[in-house]
Design a protein around this nucleic acid. Structure first.
Lengths: 128, 128
DNA sequence: CTCTATGCAAAAACTTTGCAGGGAT
DNA sequence: ATCCCTGCAAAGTTTTTGCATAGAG
């Protein structure tokens, strides 16, 4: 990491950073591509640069795409297996695990929205 | 999921299942390939079958490979960013998050072993 | 014989690399 | 003139699909 070095902010970099800043959840290249026209090589190369400067964090999703977000306050992420969306969890989960240095927490499951949809579509349980 | 249906255990399937059973951590296709000779199509197709039968669980790792393990007692996984190994965490982490249905917990960070290595290699902190 | 499993090769999906041109200093 | 950023194309990696054959019941 060379967080000390100043990074030249080119047009491409500014576009990516702005988009990351305005997103309220992690984004992948596909998300970027939809909104700004930029070659994938430029995107991925700048992502590597940003990571080297400690400006963003990244992680794999279930759909084999890699997702990126600005590095801000540490927080957990919830991956919904139904809608495939990634949500930021700001609550402190109080996870402790002796001798392990935890840098990131990822939860997988069904988000509130998708649970509600399920209940409506198959109300058998609640009607019995 | 068709957990009710019985699955025919062919030679290829038995090989994969045996290997999964004997592994003490999740494995990817590369791990399998090293130990048994089997076409990748056969491997991946059987993995899909196993998942459909609720026999295994899978998840992405940081190295873009997908990892698989036998479905046993639910437990968390720790992904070490240094040695890239995946460890099963059997302790109950008591994670609660209202309205979210959590099916899987993944932690990223530095495992005890790699922390120890770090301390030895750069002992500046402890020597001061 | 029928039905499914397997192997090989090709395709698909996402990311990285090589290389030449362009802009900034 | 130099440095490095960008775009295009090609290559790389992992997983999936098509198709013909092999094998079980």
């Amino acid at each position: 990491m060379k967080q000390d070095t100043t990074l030249k902010i080119t047009r491409a970099r500014e576009q990516i950073l702005t988009l990351l800043r305005e997103a309220n959840c992690p984004v992948c290249y596909e998300d970027i591509k939809e909104r700004i026209s930029m070659d994938k090589a430029t995107f991925y190369r700048n992502i590597i640069t940003f990571e080297a400067h400690g400006m963003i964090r990244s992680f794999e999703s279930n759909n084999k795409k890699r997702y990126y977000e600005l590095y801000q306050t540490p927080h957990a992420h919830f991956f919904c297996t139904q809608c495939d969306r990634i949500q930021c969890i700001q609550e402190d989960l109080h996870i402790q695990l002796e001798n392990y240095q935890i840098e990131d927490v990822m939860l997988k499951g069904i988000c509130p929205h998708c649970q509600e949809l399920q209940t409506r579509e198959s109300p058998s349980e609640s009607l019995r």
